[in-house]
Write a protein that binds this DNA or RNA. Structure first.
Length: 461
RNA sequence: GUCUCCAUCGUCUAGCUGGCCUAGGACAUCGCCCUUUCACGGCGACAACACGAGUUCGAAUCUCGUUGGAGAUACCA
């Protein structure tokens, strides 16, 4: 049977970075095996689930280049089936109604704790007849968990994990309000969707023992599990809102490229020897669960930025222009042309789209020219005169002309270059001057350089 | 408290069928080179096997303990 994986987020927040990585791993594994990757939206908590969050998940995945097979399953549409199956378990004697109140349960937990035991339900209704039920108490349905022995999980990532059954509660399948719990729903849905491999965060590891028992109660085949270590915040604790556990769209807004995010996420916990730059295609080919680490990791923004810089440099100028225009809005055809010509020089100086946007403003904005020293003014006049006669406006030709001019005039080339740079852009840090002269074009370059005389005139008034 | 998991440079990690490890790579940091600025690129430096016992001729690698960290302990998912 082919491999079927799934990503099952609950749409209560946005697609955060940890979820994105879980999705990525499931997707990679499915694609690597030529299997299917399914999506299930766990929207059973209607109060907290929003359409906005559902859209954010879909859009985030698409942005990352993670596609899914078949229509996404919405868990809310399957509640009836979940409940029916729980009742069936009761009929078969594998589950039972429990009439305990929250207060009673709390007391049991306290008592167990006081004895130094695992806090759990004392199974008082497990073998009692429902005829004894107190009036007016709506029961929950609990599964009869095995009393002795162990439950063993052979995890694809964590290896063999064993827990003795006396630490396992009789898990609640259906709440007193008649709604199925997460424990029940996941198992039923994973079964119905034909999931063969469940790759999820290791915060689910202990739940898995319960899941396994529910699978067994139904007599279903238990899928393979792989619990991946969590991504931690800078303080080493589980990523959460208080770390600003950001939605994937925040990373887009910070100017990261999706391939950089994927590459960065992939390297968090997974490795392929010393390889650092790994394309999505390469990842699909290489990805296996054995190469996953077991310890938690932190997202390193410096490394992410470095990766992003790499992918930025590698991206086509056309694509970057398109992305750039999304950030700065429409510009004239002429400026667009300039940006495209100058993109090679811009992109190697930026780590994020935001930096690219800031740098690229040299080709878009007019700047307020600063005062120019007497000497520099002289240089610029001469340069302007020299450039006027240039017909072959190419980088190499411009370089030849200006270098030889500096030579002849006994100016250090550095001084000339800085003068031109400043007059052209008003900045000290820019792409190379020949690159810029070429990107601006002859007309605009001369206009800017010759503006030095106009500045002088203005000062005289 | 109880259960489970984890533990190599500041960070991400390679190594983990024991010897090729005086522990490799990447990011960050710091030098130098290239150079019209800044980047890019190149070269180099700094920097880690948590601790303690064992097993062994030999341990980052195996075992046990300690310490530290994380996750889970809900009628949330």
């Amino acid at each position: 049977m082919g491999v079927v994986t799934r990503f099952a987020p609950s749409p209560t927040g946005f697609l955060h970075i940890g979820g994105a990585r879980t999705a990525l791993f499931n997707w990679l594994w499915a694609r690597h095996c030529g299997g299917k990757f399914l999506l299930r939206i766990e929207d059973t908590d209607r109060e907290r689930s929003t359409q906005e969050a559902v859209d954010a998940i879909f859009n985030g995945l698409k942005w990352l280049g993670i596609d899914w097979d078949e229509e996404p399953v919405f868990q809310s549409s399957r509640l009836q089936r979940h409940i029916e199956l729980a009742r069936k378990l009761v009929d078969e004697g594998k589950a039972y109604y429990c009439y305990c109140t929250p207060e009673e349960l709390e007391a049991m937990r306290e008592e167990a704790k006081a004895k130094g035991l695992s806090p759990r339900y004392n199974r008082m209704w497990r073998d009692r007849d429902s005829k004894d039920a107190p009036q007016g108490v709506k029961p929950v349905i609990r599964l009869k968990m095995p009393v002795d022995g162990d439950t063993v999980l052979s995890d694809l990532v964590q290896g063999k994990v064993v827990v003795t059954n006396d630490h396992l509660d009789d898990v609640i399948l259906v709440r007193s309000d008649g709604s199925p719990t997460f424990m029940l729903s996941v198992v039923v849905d994973d079964h119905d969707m034909g999931i063969t491999h469940v790759i999820r965060g290791d915060d689910h590891l202990t739940n898995t023992f319960r899941h396994i028992r529910i699978f067994e109660a139904f007599g279903w085949k238990v899928p393979q599990y792989g619990h991946i270590p969590l991504i931690h915040g800078v303080d080493g604790a589980k990523l959460s809102k208080r770390h600003g556990a950001l939605g994937i769209e925040s990373y887009r807004d910070m100017g990261y490229l999706p391939e950089a995010i994927c590459n960065g996420l992939l390297r968090l916990g997974w490795s392929h020897g010393d390889d650092e730059i790994i394309s999505q295609q390469q990842a699909v080919e290489w990805f296996t669960l054995e190469n996953l680490g077991k310890s938690a990791s932190r997202l390193d923004f410096m490394k992410l930025a470095n990766l992003n810089g790499y992918y930025l440099r590698k991206a086509s100028n056309e694509r970057l222009l398109e992305e750039l225009l999304k950030l700065i809005g429409k510009v004239s055809k002429e400026k667009e042309e300039r940006l495209l010509l100058g993109m090679n020089g811009l992109k190697q100086r930026a780590k994020t789209m935001l930096e690219l946007r800031d740098l690229s403003s040299i080709y878009v904005d007019d700047f307020h020219r600063a005062e120019v020293s007497k000497e520099n003014e002289g240089i610029l006049h001469a340069v302007a005169a020299e450039l006027k006669s240039v017909d072959n406006w190419t980088e190499s030709n411009l370089e030849q002309i200006l270098r030889s001019w500096a030579d002849r005039s006994n100016f250090s080339f550095g001084k000339v270059a800085q003068s031109i740079r400043s007059q052209l852009t008003g900045r000290k840090i820019t792409p190379g001057i020949f690159d810029m002269l070429f990107s601006f074009g002859k007309t605009e370059s001369l206009r800017r350089i010759e503006a030095v005389s106009i500045q002088r005139k203005k000062r005289m008034y």
